[in-house]
Design a protein around this nucleic acid. Structure first.
Lengths: 383, 383
DNA sequence: CTGTGGGCAACGTGCCGACAA
DNA sequence: TTGTCGGCACGTTGCCCACAG
């Protein structure tokens, strides 16, 4: 075996995953939510969990785990990015030992990149790809303007390390940057359509990387012919329950563009949100980050209108999406009506980033409505 | 909702599934093998089950179930055929009540059909599809040979009820049947390659049906980004165990072209093989059916060399692939080294088809090596 | 600055019979 | 009987600029 298949370039992977996605660091402690994992299945299969699923009394709504390994992947067919994580539930002792490294988070911002949503002209067979001026100047090698017309060959590699070659030319009246020869091959090979986005990155070594981000509508509902959705839900719960009871490792796939929310988050983020951010109460104003169409970050504001268990029967006392909110823009009907504590920032004051001086000192939970909180006991035990 | 989406045409579905695939009838009793179901996952994902999977003490190696429902499906992307079955484990009483209907099996042979493996010329963009003479005369409407050249339009529907139109012409020197206009659209839409097969059926009403059967190499190893293989194995076992302990319904997907063997078989077939076919012993010669490249049936012969549990730790006393065999042709290395009792026929005597006069009279199991057999008790209780 | 469309050349697609295999 | 090929016509692809939003 000579072809040592290493995974996708991490910088490119994160660019494709989007600006909001951050993965915990290997070796740190994280919190895993079976509920969130189930939501990923629901989003991917368009089917909710059936009512007739066995209960797992030994499976709490969140598991504190050691994150042993992360590998990045991209689907061979669709280039959809996903991550494989190996988790190991921790026993009570281990949970309490504070580790500074748990604060670290892996969130790469590409050095120089651009992302463009494809227009009808970009995807049509009639022509090539129109490169926005700033984009071309920022990430592509400078053209030799003494040539007429100035042109060069662009070589870029995708998530599978496949090489794509394009002719980059500066012409037309008025002048503009274009990708011509090679572009249509790429479009048809990746089956890109109007509305999908491509992104180019120039990494530290000056190499060009090339990724795609499909429009949201496409990745909806893939009918699986292998396993019933019920078996999938059961598999998720049973695997987590078994790993928890035996303190053994288990493996999950996180699919950032399919999953409504991250369901493996740093332990520090969880503790910080649940115990330091406790001024949360009904009526409070908050902000939350969303991704814009052009791969930027934009904040939307809203008001907290209530709190309580999302699924009181199966997952009592869970912080997963325990907040009921209303969004300021009425057009934002697609946005979640329920969110989790760690997803929000206070509306007026700047967001309190997790600081090294942060401690686990216990205070009353922000809401008594949730009843006795098992986490509260864990934290009090630290004192 | 006006577009009542009904499933694929059953005749076409069976033609695509292959001549060896037969589905039990709805309402009858069947035997479900979690082991076989796991093998389907293994074949689809190219990953064996991990050793660290919880044991399910309440889950025997086979479950006698009532088959409540079967729906036929075809993958939207690949046209891969699969069936969804709703099963309900039966209690001891129900298992014993003999039902004549259990003997029935649903095994459709298409009225008139042909299947051709595509050549390089068939799939090239340079030309059309060369129809074998007999095939054209058997399934296509007769041409009007008074025309020069004789030609007509062929309309056929695929598994999704999508209509495909082709120009059928009889020309060339020497004369031959060809599909020209429309063929390349079909090839590129279905992404057919040399080695894949197409099949045409003329049903009772004279309508033409059109299916594809991809070469084996293609459907191997699809990397799933949704669920770890461990979670899938656990999901299968936990779902079956839960259904068994609560006598509730559960759902499985059977993928005939991916799965090495059928893992839901008629109860009568199981009993007949395990208790009536008991002359099986090491050294015995046998025959077994295989599918030929051209969608026919061919028998291969071999010798039984041993028997015993495939997985003595997890699945003791299971009849699933309990026979160790050697095949006569040395080139047949790909064929299974282990098969199940109900897959074989005696080599010399004609295969004893399940007859209405068949009874459940208990005799000693064919091998004492398997130890006390829970089924034996079930059967004795009938007397 | 960049999306779309007309013009036009080059290329690929696809229909034909001629050959073998 | 049928797989592949050379020949050839025609339709599509794809590069160019002009225009306008």
């Amino acid at each position: 075996m000579e072809g040592v298949k290493r995974g996708p370039n991490p910088e490119l992977w994160h660019a494709c995953a989007g600006p909001l996605v951050s993965l915990p660091s290997v070796g740190t402690r994280v919190v895993y939510f079976p509920q969130g994992h189930s939501e990923q299945v629901a989003a991917s299969t368009q089917k909710e969990a059936d009512a007739d699923i066995p209960s797992y009394p030994n499976l709490p709504p969140h598991l504190v785990c050691q994150l042993h390994n992360i590998t990045l992947h991209a689907d061979t067919e669709t280039d959809e990015v996903y991550a494989q994580m190996t988790l190991q539930p921790m026993n009570a002792q281990e949970k309490d030992s504070f580790m500074v490294s748990d604060l670290g988070r892996q969130n790469r911002q590409p050095s120089e990149y651009f992302c463009k949503t494809l227009t009808a002209s970009d995807t049509s067979t009639h022509g090539g790809f129109s490169i926005p001026r700033r984009a071309a100047e920022k990430v592509f090698p400078p053209l030799d303007f003494s040539q007429q017309p100035p042109a060069q060959e662009i070589v870029a590699r995708d998530l599978h390390d496949t090489e794509w070659r394009f002719r980059h030319i500066y012409r037309g009246q008025p002048r503009r940057h274009l990708l011509t020869t090679g572009w249509s091959v790429f479009v048809s090979a990746k089956r890109l359509q109007t509305g999908d986005a491509v992104l180019f990155i120039r990494d530290e070594k000056g190499q060009l990387l090339l990724g795609i981000r499909r429009a949201n509508r496409q990745q909806a509902s893939m009918p699986l012919s292998l396993l019933s959705t019920d078996s999938m839900y059961i598999g998720i719960l049973a695997a987590a329950a078994h790993a928890n009871s035996t303190s053994s490792r288990f493996t999950i796939f996180y699919n950032p563009r399919a999953s409504p929310s991250e369901f493996v988050i740093p332990l520090s983020k969880y503790y910080n949100a649940v115990y330091n951010n406790m001024q949360v109460s009904p009526g409070m104003r908050f902000r939350m980050q969303f991704e814009t169409e052009e791969s930027g970050i934009r904040r939307h504001t809203g008001t907290i209108v209530g709190s309580g268990d999302l699924d009181p029967v199966r997952w009592p006392n869970s912080h997963w999406r325990s907040l009921k909110v209303e969004w300021d823009e009425p057009a934002a009907g697609e946005k979640q009506q329920r969110i989790s504590l760690w997803e929000i920032e206070p509306a007026s004051t700047p967001y309190l980033v997790c600081s090294p001086s942060f401690t686990f000192r216990s205070k009353r939970p922000w809401s008594q409505a949730l009843g006795p909180n098992p986490i509260a006991r864990e934290v009090e035990a630290v004192d």
